[in-house]
């Protein structure tokens, strides 16, 4: 369901639905890669803490903001959304 997103290892993201491109930080890339590979959003804090040197509380806070931002800018969308994002 995120197959419109092409994410490179270096953090370059192409959204085929909008034609827009993005750059993600290393942890941003790690998290979005996990989601594209089918991970449940609930497990993201645990995954981040396992791989990166970060406190669980900080990880939870940052992930919450990050996911909010992804849906805010239209990279993650509910399938029933009518919203369009253009350049």
């Amino acid at each position: 369901m995120l197959d419109h997103l092409a994410l490179s290892e270096s953090g370059f993201l192409f959204d085929a639905r909008t034609g827009l491109t993005y750059t993600l930080s290393r942890t941003g890339t790690f998290l979005l890669r996990s989601l594209i590979d089918g991970a449940d959003a609930e497990t993201l804090p645990e995954r981040l803490v396992a791989s990166y040197d970060v406190e669980p509380l900080v990880a939870r806070r940052d992930i919450e903001q990050f996911l909010f931002r992804l849906s805010d800018i239209g990279v993650l969308r509910k399938d029933d959304s009518d919203e369009e994002v253009t350049a």
Partner: peptide, 15 residues
Amino acid sequence: TRLPYEPPTIIAHKN
């Protein structure tokens, strides 16, 4: 050992 942390961010390119 875990990797050094930086916050997850995404920046849109202004084409």
